[in-house]
């Protein structure tokens, strides 16, 4: 549980405060976090395929309609599956993805800590 808490605080800390940004910037930001289904491997922002261009207009439309960033992600996840989001959500499928590196870090720290404790004895 502590892991998750630690992690959530990290997340909150890093959720960029975009409130001030205009819709145009927000649109760019959002489309950079979406993966294109046509040229898979590019973001919607980077891609110039028809699908990507449509999606760019859609994001703009939704922002003008007053959608929040999160709501747009949810909307698209609903239509195309989680694959379209470049940032994997934190759920049962991705606990390992998010926590394993942190766990590695802690294990590494423990080993180094042990090194110095051992020395003293």
């Amino acid at each position: 549980m502590k892991f998750i808490k630690f992690f959530l605080t990290l997340l909150i800390l890093f959720n960029f405060n975009l409130a001030k940004a205009e819709n145009e910037n927000l649109k760019n930001e959002i489309t950079k976090n979406l993966r294109c289904l046509i040229c898979q491997g590019q973001s919607i922002y980077d891609s110039d395929s028809e699908f990507a261009n449509s999606l760019k207009s859609l994001v703009k439309q939704k922002l003008d309609d007053g959608y929040k960033e999160k709501e747009i992600y949810d909307f698209l996840k609903d239509k195309y599956g989680e694959w379209i989001l470049y940032e994997p959500e934190f759920n049962k499928n991705t606990y390992f993805l998010w926590l394993l590196p942190i766990l590695m870090f802690l294990i590494g720290g423990a080993i180094i800590f042990k090194l110095f404790i051992l020395k003293k004895n």
Binding site: F51, N53, K79, Y80
Partner: peptide, 13 residues
């Protein structure tokens, strides 16, 4: 015209 209706349908091509 701009492809947004197709996205509502979950289409990509």
């Amino acid at each position: 015209k701009n492809g947004t209706i197709s996205i509502e349908w979950g289409a990509y091509g």
